[in-house]
Design a protein around this nucleic acid. Sequence first.
DNA 1: TGTACATCAGTGAACGCGCGTTCACTGATGTAC
DNA 2: TGTACATCAGTGAACGCGCGTTCACTGATGTAC
Lengths: 205, 205
Amino acid sequence: MAKAGYHHGNLRQALVDATLTLITEKGPQGFTLSEAAKAAGVTPAAVYRHFAGREDLIAEAARQGYEIFASLMEYAYNDGKPTALAAFEATGRAYLAFARRYPGHYMAMFESGVALNSNPALAAAAMRARGVLEQAAAKLSEHIPPEKRPPPSMFSAHIWAMSHGVVELFARGGPGLRSPFPPEELLEAGIGIYLRGLGLLPPDS
Amino acid sequence: MAKAGYHHGNLRQALVDATLTLITEKGPQGFTLSEAAKAAGVTPAAVYRHFAGREDLIAEAARQGYEIFASLMEYAYNDGKPTALAAFEATGRAYLAFARRYPGHYMAMFESGVALNSNPALAAAAMRARGVLEQAAAKLSEHIPPEKRPPPSMFSAHIWAMSHGVVELFARGGPGLRSPFPPEELLEAGIGIYLRGLGLLPPDS
DNA sequence: TGTACATCAGTGAACGCGCGTTCACTGATGTAC
DNA sequence: TGTACATCAGTGAACGCGCGTTCACTGATGTAC
């Protein structure tokens, strides 16, 4: 409650929510602080009670994104159960699901140009997310003979890169590239081929 | 010559060049039409002699990018010589080289949010670039037994996605992700593993 | 070679607008007694 | 239960600024004769 009236109640979060909506609709650079204030039903000046400015507002949106992202991935990974491989693939699917379900967060995190170190809380959240991915990759790596095993951080970077590329190029209207396949299918097939290349899947389809 | 004086000589291209520099420095949304005009040594109003507005200016930068991109890839592919595989790998390297050497073009093409169909010339250039990639993938596909061969457009989409992901996440300062590896090495290793997964490279490293 | 003239690229002043940011303020809320 | 008071979230007016876009203009260039 306390929604109506002079005091907003939870303006800070309302501003972040408005920012996320605006980012989704118009891109991370496509709106102004005043618009965000207006969308939250408040005077532009009120924003300064809670944030240092537009940049800071986007950084908070990104931070919340990284928290959700890390939690989702952690949940999907499920401590590597039932098998390292199954858990890894679930994590990959969670990546795309996150991008789909939280487009505003995703854009704030990866397309807004916010510097991760502009904000200690943001940096910490980003580190946590990255850690989950790398841990999943490291665990799965153990099933590869050591002599043909790439460093886990490279492994996870490859998966991350392909996932991000699919999101940016094919999961959005993007640069008008009509995707020839559903992004989920595209990514799943791509990760499958990659894992086969590592010897983690049988060579036969 | 004709550089100094009342008439500029080649203002149209000078504006595109200024735009590319500004994009490189401040991102596709980080500058104004007036700034671009100023950088070209000209009044904002002069821009309207050549372009419909800021959007149109960026679209032209993107178009030129796609032309360079397509030519570079075509050149690297070299009609599939000496072998389909070698030509394909050269094309992958050319992708990253393009992103590195022409960052302004790359951002105008993939990060500016310009709609490809906002401009017939732009759409044509983008199609051409895409065609080169798909042709390289199709040609290489012929070396895969048909029953385990993915559609060439999926194949090329995977490579494109991984390349783009590497560029966005690791080849720039990006979201502050310090890359654990040089992007070239990261991408080459990733593509190698992927091709091995397709049976196009021997399973042994 | 020289002169008159058409063309049109770029000027500069003007406009209305919304921006970010500041400031003294107001009034809702919650707490002490 | 009621009253006085401290707190502080949000207001609204104000500012200076640079924006995109328009317009009648100016003057450099190139061509016709």
